[in-house]
Simulated assay, not measured.
Amino acid sequence: MPIVVDIDVMLARRKMPVAVLAERVGITPANLAVLKNGRAKAVRFTTLEALCQALDCQPGDLLRWEPQGAVDLSPHAEGEATADARA
């Protein structure tokens, strides 16, 4: 799925246990795990708002889009392609 959920990143930055976040947001730890692992099909805006409030962050800190099949244009990857082209 091209939508990546970074709740684990924010939990680590805030040094907050999953159980504490689940309690503050008002969802079960099992439902939070579904969100964290990217298995959720949808997220209610009220839940997203509660996550942002509990973690003191913006929605973009929790969710990001990575297109599938994207070409890696990092300098390292580009250098490898150039080396292959010269061969």
Results as ranks from 00 to 15, higher is better:
A70E: 08
V25Q: 01
C52N: 10
A70F: 09
V20Q: 07
V43I: 13
C52D: 06
V25A: 01
E49P: 11
V71K: 12
E80K: 07
A54F: 05
P59R: 05
P75Q: 09
G26A: 04
A42D: 12
L51R: 00
L51W: 00
E49R: 14
A77E: 07
A22T: 04
E49D: 15
V34P: 06
S74W: 03
A77S: 11
R24Q: 06
R39F: 10
E66V: 11
R39C: 06
V71R: 10
A42V: 11
Q58D: 14
D72A: 08
L51A: 00
N31D: 15
A30L: 07
R64A: 08
S74D: 14
V43K: 02
Q53E: 13
A83Q: 11
A19V: 13
Q58C: 10
Q68I: 15
N37C: 11
R13G: 06
L48A: 09
W65L: 15
T82Q: 15
H76M: 14
H76T: 15
L55E: 00
L63C: 11
A12T: 10
M16C: 04
F45H: 11
L73N: 12
N31T: 04
T47H: 05
T47N: 04
L11P: 02
T28L: 05
G69T: 12
V34I: 15
F45S: 13
N37M: 10
A42R: 13
L11I: 05
L35I: 03
P75K: 03
V18F: 03
D84K: 12
A40H: 04
A40K: 03
A12R: 12
N31V: 10
V34T: 12
R14C: 05
V20D: 01
E49N: 14
P67D: 15
A40P: 10
V18T: 14
L62C: 09
E23L: 12
I27W: 01
L51H: 00
D84V: 09
V43Q: 06
D72P: 07
P59C: 06
